[in-house]
Simulated scan of single mutants.
Amino acid sequence: MPTATVARPEERSELHALRTRVFVEEQGVPPEVERDEADETAVHVLSRDDGGAVVATGRLVVRGAVASIGRMAADPSVRGRGHGAAVLAELHRQAVLRGVTEVELHAQLPARRFYERAGYVAVGEVYEEAGIAHITMRRGLP
């Protein structure tokens, strides 16, 4: 079963490299949109494969009792193998440790069921973000 941990500062370049491969190279997101000022203060989480490579990542941006989860990325070679779920579970754990009671994210439509399985509910209508169809999803935390 894959595990995930909070990224140390020296691991940030590895998670940014994964995000660049997934979002910029695979999905065509402009590089200037992929990184933003929230990266500096966000809690970044990552999962590694058996060889030690970073294969999944995500970030948590806390705003009081509500937080947003974003930049969830998994290498195509490990999709459906639990790395993304491990990252999401660790992001939830980190949110609870910080007093967060609700999390929100902008899910790409193909990932909607992944988030629904993790307890998220879609709110609102489908919209475009970085040229990709998304839907806002939320869930409470214990």
Score class of each variant (00 low, 15 high):
E125L: 14
P76V: 01
V29G: 01
V62F: 05
S13K: 13
L97A: 15
L91E: 01
A86Q: 10
R8Q: 11
H83A: 08
L18S: 03
D75E: 05
V96G: 02
R8M: 12
L105V: 04
P142R: 12
L97F: 12
I135H: 02
L91P: 03
R81P: 05
L109K: 06
V61R: 14
L141M: 09
R35V: 15
V61P: 07
G28Y: 01
D49C: 07
Q108H: 05
E37Y: 12
A38K: 14
T57G: 04
V43M: 03
Y115H: 02
S77D: 13
V33T: 11
R71A: 00
V78S: 01
A42D: 01
A130M: 02
V6W: 11
I132T: 00
D49P: 06
E11G: 01
V100G: 08
V66T: 15
A74E: 07
Q94W: 05
A85S: 11
Q27T: 09
F114A: 04
A17C: 12
V61D: 09
M72P: 04
E40D: 15
A107V: 10
H134Y: 12
E116M: 00
Y115C: 00
V45E: 03
V29C: 04
G58D: 00
V24Y: 13
G80P: 01
A4D: 10
G84F: 07
A133D: 13
A85E: 08
G82L: 01
E129H: 11
Y120V: 07
A56V: 00
D36P: 04
H92T: 03
E116L: 11
G28S: 08
T5G: 05
A89H: 12
V54R: 02
T3K: 13
